[in-house]
């Protein structure tokens, strides 16, 4: 579980995060949504420890990250898996070497143990025959799956994904969403996804946090989001006609059930 209390972050005179308090639960896919410029990426980078913040605290299973020693922070980071928006695969390494990288850095496993683990996770993301390909030879969807494999290879306790569906077609997006959700439940990890994709919100949003102007405007689940009357949320989530229709059908069905 990750607990965030009154998180505040500024760049110069501009306050980007104005006091966010929330909890990301273990074994659930937690989504951060919001318009561009709402502070999602800054929030995610604060969670990852890539940005320092002025006020508030972030606690990973009770340990406040900012108060940890350098060694403790390093150990904590070894428990974090991250899927970047552009996958961020090391382009000088093959796919298998990319996935093996965290094992080589943080474990004392033998080569054969590492190879077995790489085989396991690449099978898990359905890339069993891509070991020797270079990242440049892989499609966007494959690169995302390699990034997920690299993020989970060292059995992380926390998985962060920054717009995992950006640039992918709807079918591949669905595959990636389902994969992340399955992995979250299978490994019982705390997953935090920064997303713009409303399909993801509807599919895997077990907990959704909506940010607006650096503040948490709303939080709930994918079921609550259909019923919410919060204008900022409905403006953002139901901006397309398709989702307006989906919402009206959902509410109609829901009222039939209750009657």
């Amino acid at each position: 579980m990750i607990e965030v209390k009154d998180l505040q972050k500024s760049f110069g005179d501009t306050k980007v995060l104005k006091g966010i308090t929330t909890t990301f639960e273990t074994g659930k896919t937690n989504l951060i949504i919001g318009q561009s410029g709402s502070g999602k990426t800054v929030f995610l980078k604060c969670l990852l420890g890539l940005f320092n913040y002025e006020e508030g605290s972030i606690a990973y299973d009770g340990s406040i990250f900012a108060k940890l020693s350098e060694d403790e922070k390093r150990n904590m980071r070894a428990k974090i898996g991250m899927v970047f928006q552009g996958s961020a695969l090391f382009d000088s390494m093959t796919i298998a070497e990319n996935v093996m990288f965290p094992l080589r850095m943080f474990t004392k496993q033998s080569k054969s143990e590492m190879r077995d683990r790489v085989d396991t996770v690449l099978n898990r993301v359905n890339l069993s025959d891509a070991h020797n390909k270079m990242p440049s030879e892989a499609s966007g969807g494959m690169q995302k799956r390699v990034a997920i494999a690299r993020a989970i290879v060292n059995n992380p306790k926390y998985l962060f994904c920054d717009e995992p569906n950006s640039g992918l077609d709807p079918k591949t997006s669905m595959v990636i969403d389902n994969l992340i959700q399955e992995i979250t439940q299978e490994y019982n990890i705390t997953t935090v996804i920064n997303s713009h994709d409303m399909n993801s919100v509807m599919e895997i949003g077990e907990k959704i946090i909506f940010l607006k102007n650096g503040l948490k405007e709303w939080e709930g689940s994918k079921h609550n989001i259909f019923k919410t009357e919060n204008e900022a949320v409905t403006d953002f989530v139901y901006s397309s006609n398709l989702f307006k229709k989906v919402r009206s059908v959902y509410i109609e069905n829901d009222s039939k059930k209750t009657h």
């Binding site: 990852l48 890539l50 150990n75 991250m82 928006q85 552009g86 961020a88 090391f90 382009d91 943080f106």
Partner: peptide, 12 residues
């Protein structure tokens, strides 16, 4: 391409 961020996140 965020590869440096990836290293930092891993604690390297």
């Amino acid at each position: 391409t965020e590869q440096i961020d990836a290293l930092e996140v891993m604690g390297i």
